[in-house]
Design a protein around this nucleic acid. Structure first.
Lengths: 228, 228
DNA sequence: ACAAAAGTGTTCCTTCTACACCCATGA
DNA sequence: TCATGGGTGTAGAAGGAACACTTTTGT
């Protein structure tokens, strides 16, 4: 039985899970199996449980809906959505999180996740259930800013990656081309951004690129500012 | 009757209201009149009402507890605090907001507000009820960052102010001295940060300073970065 | 040899920093 | 005339943007 009164307040978490895939910024969406908005695309999420912390709930939903273990993953909390009538079922306040991951196939483990799929952000904008379009916009904007001031771009990449891979992340998320030569220097010279592995990637074509691991640093100092 | 079960979830808003006063960063605190934490200092706040939006609730609490009308005021949402046992009364999730205002006397309008008072941040750190110490730390850190990337420093000032006043805000919030000459140039040359009034302030001593109004711009481009 | 991607060196230009110096007022 | 805070000029340092050029691979 679903509550319809507004005196009873429930807390939900939603997840804007972003990746770079096929040269496009993509987001993990599910197709809603139940009313309201049955059949429509939405961000994965669900209600928090009694005595469950909010970030814990977010990681649990991540696992349930995508089969991905978010144990070590960075979740970035976005602003809370609590308009009284945002959910037709009653008073639901949502705490949305931004998660960033490499281009992995969706394991489709849980029951709800059977419909989980990567979709290009440009394609889903304006089509999501509830106020998830707003959440997605905020997530993308946050991701853009995180690339400027933190080393989180490496979270879009595989465990080892080339500077070219990393540059592709910046170019895709920011939607603007960057000078490969200046970018390379900036990244390599920034203490703690990336760490050499000593290996090289066998190329399809061109000179093999050096492979790197994420460095220890979280904040990017100096930042890599985009030209506005 | 206060609920003690955790199945019933209630949503609260808390306010970290900052000002610069007597050359120190100060925060508005109340002394709790009721258990839990009776007699201890805390941030003003309260529960949201049925069918009331969250930011609306924050502005209502601001009015009730300080007598200040936050109609046009910028409220900056901080991260949500929802640990299951953060409030001994039951499951309470708090949405904290940062508010910035000039050094106004606290009107002490509402009943709860009789104990409202400005206190230096340095003095109250570690003494607040609930997890309000954490919230305050986050608020101060956010305020520091806002000064770098937005024009919100003007919110600490009276409706008209001198560049010296504005510099005092930066120095107090950042806790480091700035070069008055370079600061002045940077502010005046940044499009939309401040706007000349044509007036001058009658000085106690020294050359009279030009008076300015806040400019139209919200974001600060280029940013005023502090040296870390 | 050629195409393509990786990476280095160098030049130009903008911005920041430090500080010498001048300005306008009260005591 | 001196102290004090407001404000301009300017030289040097630092960092970013643009781009010529070299390196290393596959075909």
């Amino acid at each position: 039985m679903i509550s319809r009164d507004h005196a009873t307040l429930r807390l939900a978490v939603d997840l804007a899970i972003l990746t770079v895939r096929e040269s496009a910024l993509q987001v993990l969406t599910i197709t809603r199996a139940n009313d309201p908005f049955r059949g429509q695309a939405a961000l994965p999420g669900g209600f928090t449980r009694t005595d469950e912390g909010i970030e814990v709930a977010a990681k649990r939903e991540l696992l349930e809906e995508t089969g991905l273990d978010g144990a070590g993953m960075h979740l970035e909390q976005l602003s809370v959505y609590g308009e009284p009538f945002r959910d037709p079922r009653g008073r639901v306040v949502s705490v949305p999180y931004l998660a960033i991951m490499p281009d992995l196939p969706v394991p489709t483990a849980g029951s709800d996740a059977s419909t989980a799929a990567w979709r290009p952000v440009a394609e889903v904008r304006g089509t999501l259930a509830f106020d998830h379009d707003e959440i997605l916009d905020e997530a993308v904007e946050r991701a853009r800013r995180l690339l400027e001031f933190t080393t989180l771009a490496t979270a879009f990449c595989e465990p080892v990656f080339t500077i070219g891979d990393l540059r592709a992340v910046y170019e895709t998320v920011w939607g603007e081309p960057l000078d490969p030569r200046n970018f390379s220097r900036k990244v390599v010279n920034t203490e703690g951004f990336v760490e050499e592995t000593g290996e090289k990637r066998l190329p399809g074509v061109g000179r093999p690129a050096a492979l790197y691991r994420p460095g220890g640093q979280k904040d990017l100092n100096p930042p890599i500012l985009r030209t506005r």
